[in-house]
Design a protein around this nucleic acid. Structure first.
Length: 235
DNA sequence: CGCGTTTGACCTGCGC
DNA sequence: GCGCAGGTCAAACGCG
């Protein structure tokens, strides 16, 4: 762990982890997310997660998404790392998230090896690497992943998901679940699994980009809070 | 009855 | 070519 701003550390995987102080306290934190032009590339807005009670109750949060994150208890603004689908940085993070490769197993020198081995899963082989192999690959949607400490597997991110599969992944105790957005024309998918090293941590990987707004039916009618306005601004 | 979950079968791509 | 592993499909089932 590399210490950064107060309450925020970058772990070995390069994720920004936001810790409550002390970590035992269950009281929710609130965050201000500064919108980034890159946010719209992703399947959901991290802000919505932070506004969600389930998510906010997590004592530790790690993100690999767009934008900048600022804790309300301090004025410091934490720049989050933004990954594009074909970038090596994204690749390494996506692979680690979705394929359970631990930080110990991973280093930059074996980047290509890891990519090639699991490109079908992550589909984030760099263009040059793909040309090298002269293999035609299906173009995948932008993906990113994050992890949260949570008792529940599926966090409410404002969208409606339908589970379409579950798979036991090799060398892990916990199955990986596959979800698809229930919206007809929407092809966004997400995978949910628990970290092998720490089952308290939930890894969520989003693939694709929603072509619609969140379907939080009743809430939209009953709540006219400024936070929801801000959320819709970000979507 | 409609919608969501479960789960075994099947498909696909990679490494050997 | 074969085996393995991840990803998806779809029928069966459960629940409100």
């Amino acid at each position: 762990m590399l210490p950064s701003a107060a309450g925020v550390v970058f772990n070995q995987l390069g994720f920004a982890e936001v810790h409550e102080a002390p970590a035992m306290e269950p009281s929710p934190m609130s965050f201000t997310l500064h919108p980034s032009p890159l946010l719209h590339h992703f399947a959901f807005s991290p802000l919505a997660l932070f506004q969600n009670p389930t998510f906010a109750a997590s004592s530790a949060v790690a993100l690999a998404g767009g934008g900048r994150l600022a804790s309300s208890s301090s004025s410091s603004v934490l720049p989050l790392r933004v990954f594009e689908a074909d970038s090596p940085a994204y690749t390494s993070h996506a692979n680690q998230c979705s394929d359970g490769i631990s930080a110990n197993e991973y280093n930059t020198s074996n980047n290509i090896t890891v990519n090639q081995k699991s490109h079908r899963v992550s589909s984030s082989l760099s263009v040059s690497a793909m040309r090298m192999k002269k293999v035609k690959r299906k173009v995948r949607e932008p993906r990113f992943c994050f992890k949260t400490m949570s008792e529940v597997d599926v966090l409410d991110d404002g969208y409606k998901w339908r589970k379409y599969g579950q798979k036991v992944v090799k060398n892990t105790q916990h199955p990986r679940s596959y979800y698809r957005c229930t919206q007809d024309s929407c092809r966004v998918k997400k995978r949910v699994e628990r970290l092998a090293e720490d089952p308290r941590m939930v890894i969520t990987t989003y693939e694709g980009r929603h072509a619609h707004s969140p379907s939080r039916d009743e809430d939209e009618h009953t709540q006219a809070s400024s936070s929801s306005k801000l959320a819709s601004f970000l979507w």
